[in-house]
Design a protein around this nucleic acid. Structure first.
Length: 662
RNA sequence: GCUGACGUAGCUCAAUUGGCAGAGCACCUGAUUUGUAAUCAGGCGGUUACCGGUUCGAUUCCGGUCGUCAGCUCCA
């Protein structure tokens, strides 16, 4: 206590956003400072920030700095609310299940969760009961009371909570302040900040239960995690829940079924069966990449199955064998062959099969070969996580002096590919990890080359210090899907290790052997995952160049059937994917079917159109608006859109993609 | 792999406390010939994922296997 009283004698200076200052004794509660600015502001306030650090209203302020009052309009306030929501959840759970040991309960991007250690796992019924109990806790309006305690005091308070005791052990020998928060019957070890009392949590919903390892460690016990979300306003919560529903509708697994693109069968878990329609999409993507890589790249094909000597050289046999599908070799009676999980080693073999001159570099091998990785069953998920997939893989062999130019070119290549689909990516730059190979000079040069290329793009990037591969730094490209998930698709990795392991060389200008450097490059990650993202991004309404069925010609009555069939034959002769729907159904029925199948163009032909060589064009998702145009003009328009890989016809739903990820 | 939930017709889903397994859509047949989001009538379709157990009787209860989903872990 004597510490506090001497501290109180000191004054601190708080600078408000408008430039005014408040001089208060150190230890003054944030709430009192806010109150001195205005009573209304105090009632609207949730927390405050001092020099950007968010603390709650009950925190004694000890240092001078920029002082900002956080109201519910500030995004940081939502984080505070959700974190408090986690405590309220734990309060409710503890009331109904006093045996529950408490783990961690943080705010996350879309809400919050809390982990509990319980004998009997929670059920969906429990979830409903917890939510009802939370409403009681909210109604009881318990203040969140902050206390700062000594390690001994904290241990005394959490003696019955083994998980908290373990957390407290981390504070041993640290001078970090230990704070606890109490709301009514519940006490938690917590840094804060929190809303002033439980009544602030008005609009929330418990969403799901899942297992989660204590401290993320597979070797530790599995806790029961409850996921939930909360918002300041009712309509925000409803909008969020609505978006979750909408996201489900554009889930690639749902659309894959309804649009008949692919399916999975228990006879080959984790490997897609692509239907004719789905195959069209994959083939178009591959054709586009081939087109882009016609010059400067060498497309190659290498075996799928290898004996272990290759994997021993590459290092996979030691480090990656668990993820490889091993195959019995009848000669040896051992499982000493494997399907390839990556292309790299086979490309090194290809490179090593000849002598290379510096004049050939950079030498770019690209491939679309099939890869197999034996993922654990729990990891499989639709097309985004599979056991068999194709990468648009490329390995570039080059001299160190060529790295900067090459990387700059690759970044542009990858970004412009994404742009074709209207996708935006965020870039991450991963630098040298603690355990690594190669000299510091080499890393300096490699990182400088990558960084220079990144900065040349003018795009923002996230620096992931120490997150690089052991063999070199890398740039990763994250693309966001409609449900807000970020998928790592593209990657550019510098590799100084593989050339050593495989003893690769080229003959330099000086007529002696030199080590090349290798760049690993992928653009779409895998065709499977990329297709999944495109399905969700476009909500199944593909631009015409990707659409499995581009034109559906519909005769109004049987009399125009032959005219329609002739039109389809004409379109198909031009390479367009056209079909005729002359089924014995009403026009309404067939139009509806075309809309639901998300066919970009429906060309309706009746008496007028048949006589005048026109079509009544219905553009996907534009309702009754229709255009009458000549067959020639229509054909030219579609051909042009296909040729330019235009994003047309723009799906109405695409606008919601941006909102969903925002 | 781990925790939990789930698995019924091609698809989406029903089926009281264990008592003959249903509907809509799709598909097939017929009528209808349609001017822009579901014409009418009839019909076909199931070893209730698989294996075993309890029971007079199992879609229902129990165990196992496989698969799917939500996460954890991992990852293109």
């Amino acid at each position: 206590m004597s510490d506090l009283s001497t501290a109180a004698a000191d004054l601190i200076v708080l600078t408000l956003p408008d430039g005014n200052t408040r001089e208060v004794p150190a230890g003054t509660l944030a709430r009192d400072v806010v109150g001195s600015i205005g009573a209304r502001l105090l009632s609207a306030s949730v927390a405050v920030a001092v020099d950007g650090e968010v603390v709650d209203l009950m925190t004694p302020l000890r240092k001078s700095g920029a002082f900002v009052v956080i109201t519910d309009k500030d995004p940081r306030a939502l984080e505070v609310l959700r974190h408090s929501g986690a405590h309220i959840l734990a309060t409710a759970v503890r009331r109904l299940r006093p045996d529950a040991a408490i783990g961690f309960g943080p705010a996350i991007d879309d809400g919050f969760y809390y982990d509990f250690d319980v004998e009997k796992p929670f059920t969906p019924d429990d979830l409903a009961a917890f939510e009802a109990e939370m409403r009681k806790v909210v109604a009881e309006k318990y203040a969140f009371v902050r206390e700062e305690v000594s390690l001994e005091e904290a241990r005394a308070r959490f003696a019955g909570d083994p998980l908290k005791m373990e957390r407290l052990a981390d504070f041993e020998g640290s001078d970090e302040v230990i704070s606890v928060y109490t709301d009514g019957p519940f006490v938690d070890l917590c840094r804060g900040p929190h809303v002033p009392d439980t009544s602030y949590l008005k609009h929330f919903k418990l969403l799901s239960i899942a297992g989660a390892y204590w401290r993320g460690d597979v070797k530790r016990q599995m806790l029961q995690r409850i996921y939930a979300t909360a918002f300041w306003k009712k309509d925000e919560l409803e909008t969020h829940l609505h978006q979750l529903e909408e996201a489900k509708k554009r889930d690639h697994r749902v659309l894959g079924k309804s649009l008949d693109l692919f399916f999975f069968s228990p006879v080959s878990p984790g490997a897609a069966f692509w239907t004719e329609r789905g195959t069209v999409i994959v083939n178009e993507l591959q054709a586009y990449l081939r087109d882009l890589q016609r010059d400067g790249y060498q497309e190659i094909r290498t075996p799928l199955l290898y004996n272990k000597s290759l994997w021993e050289t590459s290092g996979h046999w030691g480090k990656y064998r668990e993820n490889m599908f091993l195959v019995l070799d009848n000669e040896t009676g051992e499982h000493d062959m494997s399907l390839k999980p990556m292309n790299c080693p086979s490309h090194y073999v290809m490179y090593a099969s000849k002598k290379h001159s510096y004049r050939e570099l950079p030498l770019r091998f690209n491939t679309y070969d099939v890869l197999h990785r034996n993922e654990v069953t729990g990891a499989l998920s639709g097309l985004t996580r599979v056991r068999q997939f194709q990468q648009d893989d490329c390995h570039i062999f080059l001299m160190e002096s060529q790295i900067a130019d090459e990387v700059r070119q690759l970044v542009q290549f990858i970004l412009s590919y994404y742009r074709t689909f209207g996708l935006t990516a965020t870039l991450k730059f991963a630098t040298r990890p603690a355990t690594r190979i190669g000299s510091d000079d080499m890393w300096d040069q490699a990182e400088a080359a990558l960084r220079g290329a990144l900065e040349a793009t003018g795009l923002p990037y996230e620096l992931k210090e120490g997150d690089g591969a052991f063999y070199g730094p890398k740039i990763d490209f994250d693309v966001h899907d409609s449900i807000g998930r970020a998928w790592q698709l593209g990657t550019i990795q510098l590799d100084y290790a593989a050339p050593e392991r495989f003893d690769l060389s080229y003959t330099g200008e000086d007529n002696s052997a030199h080590r090349p450097v290798i760049i690993h490059r992928a653009v779409s990650g895998s065709f499977e995952r990329f297709t999944a993202i495109l399905i969700e991004h476009f909500a199944g309404a593909f631009p015409v160049w990707l659409a499995p069925e581009q034109i559906r010609v519909i005769p109004i009555a049987d009399d125009y059937r032959e005219t329609c069939e002739a039109l389809v034959a004409r379109f198909r002769a031009k390479g367009l994917r056209a079909t005729v729907d002359a089924r014995n159904e009403t026009l309404n029925y067939r139009v509806r079917d075309g809309e639901m199948q998300k066919v970009p163009y429906m060309a309706v032909v009746g008496k007028r159109e048949a006589e005048e060589s026109t079509v009544a064009l219905r553009v996907r998702h534009t309702g009754k608006k229709q255009e009458i145009l000549s067959v020639d003009a229509f054909e030219a328009r579609v051909l042009d859109e296909v040729r330019t890989r235009a994003l047309t016809p723009m799906p109405v739903a695409a606008t919601t993609t941006e909102e969903a990820s925002a």
